[in-house]
Simulated scan of single mutants.
Amino acid sequence: MIVVTTREVTKSSMDPQQVENLLDKLAPTSALGPVINQKEPKTVLDDTVIDEGTKNMFVNGFQDESKYAHMTAEKLSTRFLQGLQLFDTDSTCNVNHLAHWKPSSFKMGNSIDNALDDNPDTYWQSDGVQPHQLDITFSKRIDVILIAFYFSLIADESYTPRLIKIYVGHSPSDALFYKTLEVRNVNGWVALTFEDNRSSDNLLKCQFIRIVFPVNHENGKDTHLRGIRIFAPSKKTSVENSEWMQSLASSNQLVTQCSLR
């Protein structure tokens, strides 16, 4: 605690140097510094725009406006199921069943289980005030190589999340912010990998993941999530993440070239 006497104030008012000394007691200049406005890491997702930074994230490939204009519910379902087939590789293992999934809320009949099944017509729907969140807890630390989300702006409209914030750690008490996803225009599966987290092995080592949905498109209040998958490296074979991405890129070309019926 700093005590400033009347005598000090009286003298300092007569001596500029004493004024500086007095102010330095109240707010040391060593503690002052420029304010740095650090931008949080954010990945913009739009599968109508070919971008080198995100092109491998779109499991179902890119779509132009003409294809979107003729996108039917049947074609969206096909994209959902095609994505699941592309994830079925020897290099990754779906670990959804190893986690405890706890949403902040859910609408009756639209529990979080709907986002974990293989049905493109079911979804988790929140029921409450924003932000909505989903806590994912494993019994022990796990190596995550990929988190996949399915978004459909066409099917879900204002229920589609526009921003997604991801926090990771060992528990809710020590979870740290990792990244923001901005969903602009996506109708398919998005593969989030972790080259920017651990360049040595491209893994996310954690026991707890929190996914926050603060904002929807068109200012919608409740959020839909039709699909989410968490993958760990498979014990069957040791494959580098770069090989997975090459496989995914090749599969993307295959899906883009084939016609959806």
Rank of each mutant, 00 (worst) to 15 (best):
H97N: 14
G227V: 06
C258P: 04
F151H: 02
C206N: 08
F208H: 15
L45V: 08
S152A: 05
E8L: 02
A27G: 00
A175Q: 13
K235M: 12
T48Q: 09
M245F: 02
V215M: 11
N96A: 14
H70I: 15
I142Y: 09
V183P: 08
K75F: 06
F58C: 08
T89H: 07
S199T: 07
L146E: 09
R229Y: 03
L146C: 10
N119K: 01
C258V: 04
K42W: 03
D64L: 06
M108V: 06
G53E: 11
N114M: 10
N119D: 14
G33I: 01
H217C: 12
K235N: 11
L81H: 00
S13L: 12
L163V: 04
N219F: 09
G83V: 00
I36M: 00
N119H: 05
R198S: 15
F231N: 01
H97A: 12
I147C: 13
L260M: 14
L204W: 12
S111G: 11
Q17F: 03
R7D: 15
N114I: 04
S66D: 15
L32I: 05
E74I: 10
D15I: 07
G109N: 09
V35Y: 00
S77Y: 01
A175V: 11
D201I: 02
H132E: 01
S200G: 07
V212T: 07
A73T: 13
P103E: 08
F213W: 04
V95I: 15
A69S: 05
V3C: 06
N197W: 15
K236L: 08
H132Q: 03
G128C: 00
E74Y: 03
N241C: 07
I147S: 10
K235G: 11
Q207A: 15
A73E: 15
G128H: 03
D51N: 13
K205R: 10
G220R: 03
T223Q: 01
K25P: 01
Q38G: 06
V95W: 10
L32A: 04
A148T: 05
N21D: 09
D121I: 01
M14T: 08
K25Y: 12
D90Y: 05
T122N: 07
R141G: 13
L84D: 00
K165Y: 11
F213V: 04
R79Y: 08
R79Q: 12
E40C: 01
N110Y: 11
V95P: 10
N241L: 06
K107Q: 07
W101M: 06
N37S: 03
A148W: 04
V186G: 04
V35R: 00
L146A: 06
G109P: 08
W101G: 07
Y68N: 15
Q125V: 04
M14Y: 08
K102D: 14
T43M: 03
E74A: 12
T122V: 12
I154V: 09
E52S: 14
D143K: 13
V95A: 09
